[in-house]
Design a protein around this nucleic acid. Structure first.
Lengths: 141, 141
DNA sequence: GTTGGTGCAAAGTGTTTGCACTCTG
DNA sequence: CAGAGTGCAAACACTTTGCACCAAC
């Protein structure tokens, strides 16, 4: 369908059908995707696309600042469209669900840390792990 | 030398020389190590130790809660002895230096997030990226 | 003595790369 | 129509596993 979300800046890069498709899929998706999931979804629309193309474009999007790469505890990475607002992640160790949250405290922490360490902080990432309401029960200790 | 740091809980697990050596190295080291670095250091004292043994024991230590596994942007993992006090990481994108810090704000954030999401948070990890004092200068924009 | 742990080599992941072909600009 | 981008297969880096032997309990 090639939703053409009025795609942003592929500045100077060629807009191939594969590239546009991948970017659309990422922008449309409101969670995170790993390379393989993205590959699977892309293949539904363009069956000949290759996994290398997925990786190459993810790398490009990252360089262009269009997506963020997330490193959870798994061996592979997750990618998400660069958020307009900064948000963080709360991961349920029971069911794997990922909740995104924001907190004004991160901003305060950032300025505190910058001051104390004489650093310029360009990015903050908070990750909490635990058990969601449902998994708490089944996980009674 | 087998510094015998009065090693903690290998509860029920066999205390092989390799295992004790690895644990010592991790406990003595006040940074993070990746598997390969640990392997290299271990080999200095026990030249026949194998990389599989390193991995198997890192996995074990993790399960026993003796070390934490860190996921930076690299393809491989870093491990550090479980800290008595929770701390976080500030990574310089210029020189790669990693500074550890603590902040009372993380505790507050944790309770806020738990409350708001009906979650039991068991671990919090804050990672900030930016440029240290020295690298800021060379990185003038 | 059992059997958990080891070293080795071989297999598995997730990711990257060399090459010849294709299509965008 | 030049060269950026692609598909494919082969190469990579890191991690795990099967097996026969060894040593901790």
């Amino acid at each position: 369908m090639r939703t053409s979300t009025g795609q942003p800046a592929l500045t100077g890069k060629r807009a191939t059908s594969q590239r546009r498709l991948l970017l659309d899929l990422i922008l449309q998706n409101e969670g995170h995707l790993d390379a393989d999931e993205l590959y699977r979804r892309a293949r539904e629309q363009e069956s000949t696309i290759s996994l290398s193309t997925v990786y190459r474009n993810l790398k490009l999007f990252k360089e262009l600042g269009l997506v963020d790469e997330l490193h959870f505890a798994e061996a592979h990475h997750h990618y998400e469209a660069k958020a307009p607002a900064q948000h963080h992640h709360l991961v349920c160790l029971g069911c794997g669900k990922v909740i995104e949250f924001t907190s004004p405290l991160t901003e305060r922490m950032k300025s505190q840390i910058q001051r104390e360490n004489d650093f310029t902080v360009t990015g903050t990432e908070v990750r909490m792990k635990g058990y969601c309401a449902r998994c708490q029960t089944s996980h009674t200790e």
